[in-house]
Design a protein around this nucleic acid. Structure first.
Lengths: 114, 114
DNA sequence: ACGACATACCTTGGACGACGAGGTATAGGC
DNA sequence: GCCTATACCTCGTCGTCCAAGGTATGTCGT
């Protein structure tokens, strides 16, 4: 059957998990944090982030709670242990992948470990 | 309208152009070269490569010629100047992107320009 | 001679992620 | 009162990737 885990996909998910690993955040905040922390290179809009958050929560990787701050109702997310494991797996995959591509770009030589 | 250039896409294209920059190659050979040069991390099958080759040729980034080697009929591809420019643009984009993601993974510090 | 395998090309159908656009609601500044 | 920013969300679309399958021909073992 067709429809395989696209080897390139899942970057938004990875980034979201990374941000939430540090502290609890809400969707709107995450969108801007990604923009800022990547110096505007990554522009992952709300149309991407909210579905990712919902999917991660449904999967048990995140937990949410409503909080009202400064008269604003927000949905804050925190990473669960399961989410942390998932982050570590994704981060590892990404590192391997990026190294492999770099390796090809450099002419097929082996890239020495850091 | 929806349907934007997916910011993550184009890795197969990038890799194909990189390989062909060194020497002319044919599809079947490219598939295996990617596997080997990436130590099996990148497994980009024929179903990906052939369409990419056709699209690049149609775009004027590659030129093909049939050649028969050792009783085998093959379609060899070479990069055109246009293809070279395209490769350089893609490679630059990829480098920027990978740095941005790495930056976020490392905690949002600024990555100095290359 | 014949089957099995590797080489070499190609197309099709579909899954999935990413995306822009749009829709709702409230708070604060002018 | 109005506009903008904040904050949430969903829908439809689209591009990309992918496995599976199909064709053809050369080589090797038996």
């Amino acid at each position: 059957m067709p429809g395989n885990p696209n080897f390139m996909a899942g970057v938004p998910e990875l980034v979201v998990l990374r941000l939430l690993r540090d502290r609890e955040m809400y969707g709107y905040e995450i969108v801007q944090a990604i923009r800022e922390q990547s110096s505007d290179v990554l522009s992952v809009g709300e149309g991407v982030i909210y579905p990712v958050l919902h999917a991660l929560e449904k999967d048990g990787a995140l937990k949410s709670r409503r909080k009202t701050v400064a008269g604003r109702s927000r949905v804050y997310y925190v990473v669960t242990p399961k989410g942390l494991k998932r982050f570590e797996a994704l981060a590892s995959d990404w590192t391997t992948l990026a190294a492999a591509i770099r390796s090809v770009l450099n002419g097929g030589q082996h890239v020495p470990a850091v």
